[in-house]
């Protein structure tokens, strides 16, 4: 794993950076609770008593979710800001709601294919045009 390639000085810097990052994880509390991560790690056979590694997994997962969420947010904003032909249907208040449409698009960019099931009635307004929905 520690194959040759990186320069000797850079390697030393990376070593110290990694050690520093790992030690900083002890003070950083991820949004995903440690218990949840440990539970799923144990279920897949992952064995490590080090809390820093658990935190590292939690942070990585949180980063992924955050990336997906920010992508979905951009999609949502783009959809809301799109020019609406019918001015009467323009919602008065622009609320950012995470919907399956935006999430699907964001996840597709991150390599996850998630399709909103057509028959699934999420709310009474499901199936209508997103812009015409009564956003709550």
């Amino acid at each position: 794993m520690n194959s040759s390639g990186a320069g000797g000085d850079g390697k030393h810097d990376d070593d110290s950076a990694l050690a520093e990052f790992l030690s900083s994880l002890m003070d950083y509390t991820p949004t995903i609770p440690d218990e949840l991560v440990e539970h799923y790690l144990a279920r897949s056979g992952f064995q490590c008593p080090d809390l820093r590694l658990t935190r590292l997994v939690a942070v990585a997962a949180q980063k992924f979710i955050t990336d997906v969420a920010s992508d979905a947010l951009q999609h949502c904003k783009a959809r809301l800001s799109a020019p609406v032909k019918d001015k009467s249907k323009q919602p008065k208040e622009k609320k950012l709601i995470l919907t399956m449409d935006d999430l699907s698009k964001a996840l597709r960019e991150n390599g996850v294919n998630l399709k909103h099931q057509e028959y699934f009635a999420d709310s009474p307004s499901t199936g209508m045009d997103p812009s015409t929905r009564e956003e709550n």
Binding site: S70, M100, D122, N136
Partner: peptide
Amino acid sequence: SAGFHGSRHSALDSL
């Protein structure tokens, strides 16, 4: 924290 005001149940479940 990403900036959403709300979300659907289905989207939260998927996420």
